[in-house]
Every structure is written in C-alpha cells, then in structure tokens.
Design a protein around this nucleic acid. Structure first.
Lengths: 352, 352
DNA sequence: GTGAAAGCGCTAACAT
DNA sequence: ATGTTAGCGCTTTCAC
C-alpha cells in the first residue's frame, strides 16, 4: 500500500504532501548519468565534465534534492554532528557555551546535539549511549556530575569521537580526550587581589559543591593568593551550598560566627554562578549591606548583573572563547590530547 | 593502511584505542547466530528462543555493542532526533523551551539538535537544510525571523517531519505543521488589567519589533483590553526597540512627550524579554522611579527578576508546558494540524 | 571521465 | 523460531 501510494505521487509528479524524498538515483536518472557521477559532483572529489556537471546540478535543483547525512555518515563511520552535554541548562554560562559551540559547528556544516545530564548519573549514561549511537564527530562535556562515566567516554573516544572537557580537567588519559577551561586557581587569585585592593581581609567563600574539582581549585586559588599576602582564609570560612534551590545557609553561619567572635566577615566570594545567586540571596535575607558590610565578588557574568539592587562584581570566564576552542579542537582532530587553560577576567561593579 | 591498522587491532583483540566498532555481524558471529536474529533480540519484534536470546545478549555485552542509530534511521526514513531552532539563545525563555523539549525527547530515547538562526535568514536556511539532511522526526521552531522560509519548512513537513511552531501561529497550512503558544492577546489583557487595578491609565508599550506577529498581538491585546475599560492607548505610545543591544530610546521619546503634554506616562508594558531589559534600562537611565513614577510590567520571568533594584512584575508564558506539549506532539504524530493556545500567568512584584 | 557493482551496518521480507 | 537474501541511500573501488 505504502509503495503504491508513493508510486502514485511519483507518477503524478504532484507536489502533494507526503511525497517520497528524491534519492541520488532519482537525480542520476533525471540527469541521465550514473549515481557515481552524481556523488562525484556532490563531493567534488573527482573531476566531472562540465556538461554532466551542469546536468546534475540542474537535476538536483529541479528535484530539490538534499542528500541524507545519515547515509553519508555510514561510510566515514562518523557524522559531522557534535554533542554537547551540560549539567544544567539554567546556568547562563552554559548558554554562552552552547552559543559558541553551535556557532562554530554550524559554520562547518555540522549540527549540535544538546543534552542535559540534569545532574542524574542514569540520565547521563543513557544520553551518552544515545550519542554514541549517533557516531558523532565530537562531544563537548561539562557535566558537573562526578565521577563521570569514564568507561562510556573512553568507548566514545576509542570509536573515534573527540571528547572535550570544558570547565574541568581531562578525566581520563586518551589521545582523543581534551580539555579547555579557565585557570581556576587564577580565578580565586583574581578575586582575592581585588578584595585586598578594596581593603578587605576577612573573606568567606561559598562554593557550589565541595566535591567539584573546579570549585575546589577556585577556593584553593583564593586561599593561596591570600596566604601570599599573609592573610589566612580559614577552612571553616569555606561553605558549600546545601541545596541548589535555597539561599546559602552555610554562609549565614560563617557570618554569624564571625560577628560573635568580634571579627566580622567583610567580604564574600562565590565560586559558581549558582553559588553567586544563592549567596547574594542569603546576604539580602540577612539584611546585610553590600558593599558597606561585606564586599561581594561573584562568578560568571550574566545579563542582569548590572541591574541588581547592588550591581555585582564578578570574576568571569571567557565562555565564548572556551566554547570556540573546544569546537575547533573537534574539527581539527589533534593527534594527541591537548589541554588549554584560559585566563579569567574581572568585571568590577558596585558590590565591591 | 587504514584497513591494515584495523585488521591488526582486530587480530590482536586489543583494547587499544581507535579500534574498529563492533557491528551487528560481529555480534552474530560471536553468538553463533545470524544477523537477523541479533536484530530481532535488539528490537524485540519477533520471538527468539531463550537460549539464542541469552547468547546474543552475552555477545552484545561482551563486545559492548551499540547499534548505529544512523543506519537504523535509513530504513524507517527518519531518525528519532528532534530539531530545535531558536532565534536567540540568550533569551532565558528559549532556555526553558530547550529544557522542556530536551527532557521529553531524551525520555523517549531521542536526542535534540539545537541550532540558532541568530536572526540571520541565510543561517536559518542552511540550518534547515542541515536538519533536513538529518531526516529528523520533528522540528520545534521559534525563530523570530520573519518571514520564515516556508518552502524549506514545507519540504520538511512533506518529507514526514513534524513541524511545531512555538510562540507563534502556524505559518503554513499543512497536516504536519502545528503550533503551541501562549494566548498573546491574553498576555496584553492581563498586563492591562493589572495596571488598571493599580490605578494606572496612561500606558506606554515597548515592543521588540513591530513586524513580529506575536509582538503585535500582545500590544493589540493590551489596547483592546484598555478600550473595554474606556481607556485609550494611542498608537504613538507603542514603540519598537531600535536595537536589541541599546536601551529603548523610543520609550524615552514617548515619556518626554507625555510629560510635555502634561499627561505623563504612568505605566510601561514591555512585550518581550529583551524589550523588558531594554525598557528597564531606559527607565533607569532617565532616573525614573519605579513604581512611583511609572509602574512597570515586563514579559517572561527570569531568575534574577526578584533581585533587581526594583523587582519586576512580569506576565509569564508557561515555557516548560509549551515545550513539553510541542515535543509530545512530535512523538504523537497527529493526523492533522493542531493548534494549542495556553493561558499566560502574572507574577506580581514591586515594580507595580 | 564515467558507469557497474560492491559494499557501509542494519532491517524486513521470504524462506525453511 | 531462525537463516538467507534483498535492499535502505550513498560512496568508492575497479574497469573501461
């Protein structure tokens, strides 16, 4: 029945809906050449006589032929799509990442698969499997989940997919596994130097989660930099969000303790976008004045940062640049594992 | 050379990198069955003896075999991926849209292609072509660009791809082209009723672009609703952003004119997320106090809205719900074109 | 230069 | 129940 219908559509040459897609065979027939010739003009790999070339082009246009990337990918073994696996789509930083990757990839005629691990290991696993089934050219991964499924990633890399970790170091040694990220220690150092220059010395740090390597490096960075200036940021001043959805209650405890001890916290540094939001909320809830009571340095810029009650000073990572380099790596297919470390920036606003 | 290498890898049975992917043939050989049988246990369509079933499963696990979705899609003619074409990734609303679509699609074992038209018709065209080449199951499209490339979309739909317009009406009649959106007239009405209840009557409207149908409906909505209350919102009070990057200078003109005429603007309604940001900026730049001088109603909620200098009242669209319904439509493959119209919401904050 | 034919990895009749 | 075989739409030897 199905084929009968298709034949009818073909026969009538109608533009009715549901019509069969033209195949390379249709083009060849219309142009009076072989499918091989059509394939040749499509790929431009071998030379075809100008005459046939023209016939083929015309047939392609006439039929509005668009070759299937799926079938194509069967041969090379890989499609020209790139996967992007992020932990949490709500984070504006990931949005910039997407923009960068998407822009480079589509520039090269590819398409990007977007998936969110949603901080769920099971989901992450099934998404990785689905992506593997797509025989993608590369995968950019920022999943905050730890530990990442190394086996699955290794398999992807084994099968020829370039894997680029972004905002985190390479998690497994493999010639096709790379990393592009901001220098996280420098992030902390930058925050410290700025706070120091503003005359602050008693810093509390709010991190998103203690087990995140990047988060740890950022807090290590600020402590190390402070120590160079002979200032100590005690371990207890570093708190972690108890929930991504709630204000930073850990920070409250630190501030109250500091107050009680007669040595009030005069600066707060948040090490992630979410930590920034939650710490800011907590300070607001506590009725603490920024920057009078405490100076506040956040992480990751976002469109409304300049329009808050107190516009925010933030350490920034060059998201677009990171994304662009990651995508470029996938396209370039380097022989060996590469790691790129980018410098952070600082956007100063009224909160410090 | 290439094949030589592959043979070596095979022969040595090594787990070295770059090894050839196992195919269904490998699995069949190892399990001592035909490829057809393997295919059967994979799809579960026909019954296979428990014994062979077990052998196959074991071989699959042993080889870590993951069938290619690309090759699979060749048969059915369509992959199970869904495309998502958005106008501008910076808009938080699109982010929620993505989350919703991604969640439903991956739930069903599919993957979503994300692409941004970046408000560039050429890009839009090439992205649509690339997506068509992927033989996607469906496409969710929110591109603000107008007019959309109907020919390309029609071709997609003709070839069996479900096309769902989101945040805009169906742009072409086709049984496989649908629409899920917020009731834009109701958006305007909601804004009016709220402003009226706050005692405001001289409203200025800031739209993102006059040629956008949804924008027009929102401003029409507020005018119509006001008229019912015997209040006129003159045509001149409706301005359009001259640039997406700059504050809303058109609004400034309207406000100054109102002031000069002795009938000052006492309320502003912005009809899009970007319009909201730019109008808010302009008001701040003019030193106008919200809500004392003018009450402000924006459109689309975003994470920081509650933490601005003046927390914002916004009319909201149920982004996740819209996305979910759109994705579900693609999975359900309705026989005929469907249009879903969802009710907007209102989040009241200090700006009104 | 160009076509015929042999696949790529998988599925779906068609046999048995 | 299971193997054999013929493709899906495209690329790529391999002859001519």
């Amino acid at each position: 029945m199905q084929s009968r219908q298709q034949l009818d559509a073909l026969a009538s040459g109608s533009s009715a809906s549901g019509r069969r897609r033209p195949t390379i065979g249709d083009v060849a027939r219309l142009a009076g050449v072989s499918t091989a010739t059509v394939s040749r003009v499509l790929s431009g790999t071998a030379k075809v006589s100008p005459a046939k070339q023209a016939q083929v082009m015309q047939a392609i246009k006439k039929l509005d032929y668009n070759p299937s990337d799926l079938t194509r990918a069967i041969f090379t073994g890989r499609s020209n799509s790139v996967g992007l696996l992020v932990a949490d789509l709500r984070n504006p930083y990931y949005v910039d990442l997407m923009r960068g990757v998407e822009s480079v990839v589509t520039e090269h005629g590819g398409l990007v698969f977007l998936a969110s691990a949603a901080r769920d290991p099971d989901r992450e696993a099934s998404v990785l499997r689905a992506m593997d089934a797509q025989r993608m050219r590369g995968l950019v991964i920022t999943s905050g989940h730890d530990p990442i499924d190394h086996a699955a990633l290794g398999r992807l890399a084994d099968h020829g997919t370039q894997v680029v970790f972004v905002t985190r170091p390479v998690a497994l040694p493999h010639p096709r596994v790379h990393s592009v990220r901001v220098d996280d220690e420098a992030v902390g150092a930058l925050a410290w130097q700025h706070l120091r220059d503003r005359g602050r010395s008693n810093v509390a740090v709010v991190t998103q989660s203690a087990w995140s390597l990047t988060q740890r490096e950022r807090s290590r960075g600020i402590r190390t930099a402070a120590r160079i200036d002979h200032v100590d940021i005690p371990e207890e001043h570093i708190t972690e969000l108890s929930s991504l959805e709630e204000p930073a209650d850990g920070l409250r405890a630190v501030i109250e303790a500091g107050r009680d001890a007669g040595r009030p916290i005069d600066a707060v540094f948040a090490t992630s976008g979410i930590a920034t939001l939650r710490a800011y909320q907590e300070l607001a809830d506590m009725g603490i004045s920024i920057p009078d009571d405490v100076a506040f340095v956040g992480f990751d810029d976002f469109p409304w940062a300049a329009h808050l009650k107190t516009p925010l000073t933030v350490v920034t990572q060059p998201a677009l640049e990171i994304a662009t380099q990651a995508a470029q790596l996938i396209i370039d297919e380097p022989e060996a594992s590469v790691t790129r470390m980018l410098a952070p920036g600082l956007t100063v606003r009224a909160s410090t």
